[in-house]
Every structure is written in C-alpha cells, then in structure tokens.
Design a protein around this nucleic acid. Sequence first.
DNA 1: CCTATTTAATTCGAGGGTCGAAAAAAATAG
DNA 2: CTATTTTTTTCGACCCTCGAATTAAATAGG
Lengths: 405, 405
Amino acid sequence: MTGVIRSNEVRRGNRGLVLSAVRTGGLVSRTDIGRKTGLSAATVSAITSDLIADGFLIQPADVGQASTSSRRGRPKVALSVNPMAALIGVVIFQFNRVSAAIVNYSGAKISECSRDLTSADLSREGVRDVLVECLQAALNSSGLKKSLLMRIAVSVQGVTDVAGKYLLWSPITDHRDLPVADWMRQAFGVAASVSNDCDLMARALNRREPDRYGTSFASIMLSYGVGMGLFLRGDIINGLNTSGTEFGHMVYQPGGALCRCGRLGCIEAYAGDYAIQRAAFGRPNYTPPPALTDPIDFKKISDLAHSGDPRAIHAIEEAGRAIGTGLVSLFALVDAFPIALIGQGTIVFDLMEPAIRKALQGAVAGEGPSIEIHCFTDENPLVAEGCALTALVVLDEEIADAAVN
Amino acid sequence: MTGVIRSNEVRRGNRGLVLSAVRTGGLVSRTDIGRKTGLSAATVSAITSDLIADGFLIQPADVGQASTSSRRGRPKVALSVNPMAALIGVVIFQFNRVSAAIVNYSGAKISECSRDLTSADLSREGVRDVLVECLQAALNSSGLKKSLLMRIAVSVQGVTDVAGKYLLWSPITDHRDLPVADWMRQAFGVAASVSNDCDLMARALNRREPDRYGTSFASIMLSYGVGMGLFLRGDIINGLNTSGTEFGHMVYQPGGALCRCGRLGCIEAYAGDYAIQRAAFGRPNYTPPPALTDPIDFKKISDLAHSGDPRAIHAIEEAGRAIGTGLVSLFALVDAFPIALIGQGTIVFDLMEPAIRKALQGAVAGEGPSIEIHCFTDENPLVAEGCALTALVVLDEEIADAAVN
DNA sequence: CCTATTTAATTCGAGGGTCGAAAAAAATAG
DNA sequence: CTATTTTTTTCGACCCTCGAATTAAATAGG
C-alpha cells in the first residue's frame, strides 16, 4: 500500500522533480527542464515561476545562456538554484578530529573550521560541546545571517539509527546512543540528521559519477575498520533499524580472528587496519585490537610488503581474500555490481587485488574477473560532499512539499 | 527521479488501492474501503462504481452485510472481487513433478492437474511441452471459457531472471535459460511470468500472516538445496539481474565443502539435503553431490539422529551452524528479522536450533536468542498460494492502470 | 533597415482528479 | 408514523497537467 495520492501531492512531486533537475543541471533553461523531467512547457513555466517567487530559483543576470548560442530564435534563459536561499551546516566527527562547514544552497562551501582533540577522552557532553562549538565557529566566520541556517547534517564514524537521530555505536568513543541530531537541533534551532560516513561517501560518488555509480555499486572503506555504503537500483541500502550494511562484520572465518566488535571471524578481523597490522607484525589473530588509538600507518606496511616482507604480503593477501569472499556472499544475495574502494587501505590495493579476484573467481557465472574496482585514497572530500548533499536533498524535498497549503 | 506524475495516474494509483483493499478485505463496504485507504467517501464511491461497471467488483446479492449489523442506520453494502472477472493459470515445476491449476479472480482454485515424470530426462522442448500440456489439461477440466484466462504464473525450483521471463538455472534440469514465460504466452496467448519458488513461499506468508511476516522476514527453504525468499520493509528483495537472495550460496567456510554449484564452502554445502546426508553417512565433504536425483529422505536422518547416532547429530548441528552463521552475515547487512524455515529439513529443527542460536549469539546487540524462528514443513501449499497471488496482484495492477485512457 | 523565420516562454481553456458539504437512501428506535 | 442514525451518492469548488495559441526575443537575409 503506497497510500492515497491527492491532487496537490502531484504538484509536490513535480516541484521536487524540477528542483532536482536544476540542482543537478547547474544552469538549465525551462525547456531543458521540460526535456529532463518529461513535464510540459506549461507546467514547467508554472512551477519555476512559483519557485522563483519563493526565492529558491533565480535567473542569474550575467549569464545569458547555458549552451553556446549561435542558433537563431529566442535565446534560452538559464535558471539556477539561488545560493542565498538557505545555508546548511555540515559537521564531521572523525577519529581525533571534528570539522564543520557552512555550505550555501547551491552547494558551495562558505566557511569552515576544525578542531584537533582526543576523541576517546571526551565525555558525552564533551562530544556534544565540541560538535556544537565547531559548527558555531564556522557559522560565525561565515559572516552571514544565522537565520539563514536551515538544516544540519552530521557525519560520524560508526553506526547510526536508521532515522538519523542517534550515533548508536562508534569505534572512536566508548559512549553509546548519543542523540547527536537532537543536540544540534537544540543548539541551532533547525532540523538535523546524523549519518554513517560510509553512506555519505557512497552518496557523493553516486552524484559525482552517475555513469559508473548512478544505480548500483558498493563503496568499501578500508581505513579505520571496514565500512560499506551500498546503492542498489539508485537507492541507498540501510538496515531495518540501523544504518546497516556492515560489510566488515559479515563472517569470513567462523570462530576465527578476534574482531574489534568482540565477535570472531568478521571480515574486519582480517581486512581492518588493525587486523592487517596484527598479521603483518606476526601477532596472533586473537590479539585484542588496540581500542581507540591511531589508525595504523598503512604506508609502513605498504613499504614492508613492497620490499618483499612475506608476513606483510600474506597479511594483505588475507585481507583481500576476506574482502573477496564477502563480496561473493553479497553477490549471492543481490548479484554483482561495481566496487569503489576508499581510504588509506587502497595504497596496498596492488597487492590485494589478485586475492580479491581469485576469491571472486567462478562466482556469478564467470563475472569474477570483470567486476569493476576503482580506488579513492582520500575519503575526506567524499564525506564532506556527501554530507552537504544529504542536507541539500532533504531540504529540496521540504521545499517541494511546502507548496501552497 | 521518480518520474512525472499526471492527473490520470492519480486515479490509477487510487483504483489500485481500492482493488487491493477489497482483495485483502474479502467483503468490505465502501465506508470500510475509505477507512482502509484514506480516500474520501466521494472518491471511493466514484472508483467503486467504475470498477463495478467494468465487472471487476460485485455486490454479492445474498450477503447483506459484512459486520454483525445490529446498529441502526443505512446498512453497509458489502463489495467483493468478482470471481468471474478473470481466470489465471498456475504452473509449478518441481523435481519429477509438474502441477497446474486454474484459479479464479477471487483466488479460489477451480481445477487442477499434475504429471509425474523424470525431470532430468526432459529435453528443452520436453519441459515446454509438459508445462503447456499440464496447464491445458487443467484449463480443459475447468469447464470454463478459455477466453477468460488472463495471465499465467509459473513457479520453478531454480534461478530466474529478475524480469520473470527465463528459468536461468535449475538443480532439476541441465537445461539453461529456458524461456518459460514466452512458452506459456505463445501457447495460451496471455502474459506469463516465471518466479523462484522460494520467493513465492515468502509472498504467501507475507499475505497469510501480515502481523508476523507483513514487513520484514526471510523464509529459508531446507529441502532440495537451500533457498531463501526475503522481504524487507514490505517489499520482496531480488537480485539486480536474477531472482537473487541465494542464501545457500553465501560462503560459510572459504575453501570448504563442495557445493552443487561447483564452488567450495557455500552454506548449502553444509546445510543442503545432500550435504547433511553426505556428512551423516560419513562421506567426505568433497564428495560430488548426486546430480538430479531424489531429494534425500530426511526422515531417515532424523531417526538416526534422534536415536543418538553421533555422525547424524553432528551433520545436523553443522547445518545449523552454517545457517546461523549466514544469518549473522545477513543481519550485519540489514539488521535482524524473523525467520520462517520451510520444507522437509524442518523435521530435524529441534536438533538444529541450538547450533543456529549459538551462532547468532552476540550478533546485533543481544538479539541472538530472541530471533523468531517458525517452521513450515510442507512447502507445497505455500508455493501454490504464492504463485496464484503473484498473478492476481499483477492483474490488479493492470486493471488499475486500464482506467479510461 | 525591415521582414520572415526560428526558438523559448507564457497564457488560456479543456479535461481529469480529489474533497467537503449537502442530499438522498435505507435501515432502526420508540 | 416520525425522528434518528449511518451509508452512499451528488454537486460544486479547487488543484493540477496538458495542448494549442499567443507572445517574446533573437537571427538570417534581401
């Protein structure tokens, strides 16, 4: 049961369509919008005129035209999102670092701010205070009216609830069930949501490279633990209650190596940063993972392995086997899709790839070797982009819904 | 991008809502429909009057009222689906057996027919011919006009394409890529689809027990191999290209026991019928699974195990560990949900359950022991029900879409 | 310079939808 | 036999999209 459809909801849906066409299109004419959305020129005209009147779209005066106009006829008049229509706050909570930014409605960063700290030492209130203070500082330094702030998106390393209200569990703090969204809402008086960083990276790739990542793919982060963001048929996949898609905690070797989560044999217990380090330095795989300390120096292990150290090589290969085996299980469920590998771990991808491919061999009718895998070593730009994107998309939906009555 | 919404599509959606409210409700008044769907009385009146005029709904004359009417006021007039509005054909292709039935638009079985045969011996055309002939016989014995046949749904043991056109792979025949839907369409001149039997069982449970299985659950079939039907948030999950959710081919022990699919270590290679038999009788786990033969006699293994045979007990426990471990991986992806175990394998569930629960222990924040697991030993009624249901639901959608222009 | 042509955007009525309020229908209570 | 209650239909207001006609704004070319 999808629920009743009423007449005015038609308008809401189509307003959203127009808004999203302009957001992804940059500078587009009304005719372009009609072609992209399938709406008639009459309807596009009506909707854009509303959105302009409400201040969400503008006709940039200086830009005459989108395309190189050498044809005759009345020239297209380009529309774009109004950068000043709203501000959003972006906060990123990482290991030993909090950063924040103010982004305008067209997605451009206005100001930013960051704090280095020891995340494991923070009290619950300490976490709250640093998140709030950092965004406050970014807001202050933006020099813009605070009343323009419309929404806040927070990225965290860890598991959130599916509604985006709580940070339920995180490897970088011992606190649980932190009401991050409420903290931000109370401090700034606007709606806020909190998301898993891997989901945000996936959203960024999904928007940034629609040809490759527009419909179905997984982004697997190899740095602090093993995380995943999963898109299937154009939609992000989450758990029923949590942010879910914890690829790192699928089982690779039942009863095997000790994982940071306390269970045995998880993929992360073989492919996580601490697991590779543990294996590379010959420590037994039941060695408890170092809690809340620095991510390992992948560079050191990479150097060791590339200089021929057999334990380092074996550690990396075992990580590849774990990842490849996990992908086989995932592909058994939903068929194969391209993979984006993200994070510091990608600097040993050359040594890891053969093991991944070998594990995939024979899975899903010979598709093994043809699975696309691409690497992105620096996750930070993706997280920031995905975080802003999330807030903007939700804002667009709210604006679309806020039609007359 | 969800796509444009036009005015007449609003009507289509709401017609579908009304139709589905009547189908699930049995005998419902217009007021009831309004309450169930959220539509206004005026709209319900308009839509039902259309649907009655088109012959899809009727007001059964003999039934005055749905509820026990002892209140005053104008009595409700009950509506129901018109059983004579359409016929659908149901065909079930199983190991060494084909069965077919004719079901009317209200879901009642009109006639049926079955054929025992040796499925492994059939040629491609032989498969086609027996499926067509069996349904033809059921149709003939129904005694109803053949022109009433509107749609055919076929259930198969095996992997189908996601569009429901082909049987791509099956354990019960060596043929591949059988165009089952086209065969039926060409033979009977109506639209047809082919579905994985485990998906159909899940659909049947989803409809039959909405309180327990209405939103999220998995049905795992333990008989001929290991199959799964998965519902999340009310929608069935399929692969990107195939019917997918091949739980049995997630990896349990990398490099482990030989699976019927040719790979090593699949869950099915430990929990499938042939795997349990192999282990119970002390044959090595690299013994090739007997191809295309009878499903094993679970009763014999059950008797052995219940009489204390250590190898039989161990075989069943290992199957439980494999299933439990697979669930841990699945729950890592999408969080925990209730499980329905289906098929002959459930007769050893008492010996299997402790191993399943132990594997789940500690997974997903102490939810291990509280996962609901219920057993259904006979899968056949579920498959038949799900198969008819699938055709009826699609038919309802077509009828809803066939609004005026 | 001026007109024909071309393309973009707006305006205007037609048509289809849902909804609330009022009206009609069909029973019971007394 | 009338008042009351509940269900169902009817009617008018309002919203939305669309096609066709109209208006707007440029170029091409004599």
